[in-house]
Amino acid sequence: MNEQHRNLVLMRHAKSAYPDGVADHDRPLAPRGIREARLAGEWLRANVPAVDSVLCSTATRTRETLARTGIDARVRYAERLYGATPGAVIEEINRAPDDVTTLLVIGHEPTTSALALILAAADSAESTVAQRISEKFPTSAIAVLRVSGRWADLQPGGAAFVDFHVPREA
């Protein structure tokens, strides 16, 4: 059987606001976050194969980030991604259908950067991408990884870095 490569796109939510009296889970995007989520969507459309499916935290800022990217794909919201460990996110990724070739996961820090580094562990020793991610995974940042085989089989060390991008206005 010819092994299919899949694309795993890990994105941290865009910059959020901190309105008084609003619970952390319910914080909306800040004006800068709205602009940067749009830029992230433009970058994804220009640089990554079409997103087939999205796995998104239920937090307001992650849902608004997805909406502002303009990515049009089937979405599964997982409350578990809010405050998740990297292992829990991997378990959610393992549930992605086999027909998905590009999966976008929108979540939070510090989980997103830790997840990227854990998944590409074998690839990370001399990787400039790994170095950048370990230094900082800013809001709206996007890590693109290549996965060989099925989503159900993805485990730590089972991916390789392709790109890391932080969308910002020039």
Results as ranks from 00 to 15, higher is better:
residue 1 M to G: 13
residue 2 N to S: 15
residue 2 N to K: 15
residue 2 N to M: 15
residue 3 E to A: 14
residue 4 Q to D: 12
residue 6 R to C: 10
residue 6 R to G: 05
residue 8 L to D: 04
residue 8 L to E: 07
residue 9 V to I: 15
residue 9 V to W: 05
residue 11 M to S: 02
residue 11 M to I: 08
residue 12 R to D: 02
residue 13 H to F: 07
residue 13 H to S: 00
residue 14 A to Y: 00
residue 15 K to W: 03
residue 16 S to T: 04
residue 17 A to G: 07
residue 18 Y to C: 09
residue 19 P to M: 10
residue 21 G to P: 09
residue 22 V to N: 09
residue 22 V to D: 09
residue 22 V to S: 09
residue 23 A to G: 00
residue 24 D to Q: 08
residue 24 D to F: 10
residue 26 D to W: 14
residue 27 R to V: 01
residue 29 L to F: 03
residue 30 A to Q: 12
residue 30 A to M: 13
residue 31 P to I: 02
residue 33 G to M: 02
residue 34 I to W: 06
residue 36 E to S: 10
residue 38 R to K: 15
residue 40 A to R: 04
residue 40 A to P: 03
residue 41 G to H: 04
residue 43 W to Y: 15
residue 43 W to N: 10
residue 51 V to Y: 06
residue 51 V to K: 08
residue 52 D to Q: 06
residue 52 D to C: 04
residue 52 D to S: 08
residue 54 V to F: 01
residue 56 C to W: 08
residue 60 T to W: 01
residue 61 R to S: 03
residue 61 R to L: 07
residue 63 R to M: 13
residue 64 E to D: 14
residue 65 T to H: 05
residue 66 L to F: 06
residue 66 L to I: 06
residue 67 A to Q: 13
residue 67 A to H: 12
residue 69 T to F: 00
residue 69 T to K: 02
residue 69 T to G: 01
residue 69 T to C: 01
residue 71 I to H: 05
residue 76 R to C: 03
residue 76 R to T: 12
residue 79 E to I: 03
residue 79 E to N: 12
residue 80 R to L: 13
residue 82 Y to W: 06
residue 83 G to E: 09
residue 86 P to N: 09
residue 86 P to F: 09
residue 88 A to Y: 04
residue 91 E to K: 07
residue 92 E to F: 02
residue 92 E to D: 11
residue 93 I to V: 15
residue 96 A to L: 12
residue 97 P to R: 15
residue 99 D to G: 09
residue 103 L to V: 03
residue 103 L to F: 05
residue 103 L to I: 02
residue 103 L to H: 01
residue 108 H to W: 12
residue 108 H to E: 10
residue 110 P to V: 06
residue 113 S to A: 14
residue 114 A to L: 13
residue 117 L to G: 02
residue 117 L to A: 06
residue 117 L to Y: 03
residue 119 L to I: 06
residue 121 A to D: 11
residue 128 T to D: 02
residue 129 V to H: 08
residue 132 R to C: 00
residue 132 R to H: 07
residue 132 R to E: 06
residue 133 I to C: 02
residue 133 I to A: 05
residue 133 I to M: 07
residue 138 P to Y: 03
residue 147 V to C: 13
residue 148 S to W: 12
residue 149 G to M: 14
residue 150 R to C: 14
residue 151 W to N: 03
residue 153 D to L: 12
residue 155 Q to R: 15
residue 155 Q to W: 05
residue 157 G to F: 07
residue 157 G to T: 02
residue 159 A to H: 09
residue 159 A to T: 07
residue 159 A to N: 09
residue 162 V to Q: 14
residue 165 H to S: 07
residue 165 H to G: 05
residue 167 P to E: 05
residue 169 E to D: 14
residue 170 A to L: 15
residue 170 A to D: 15
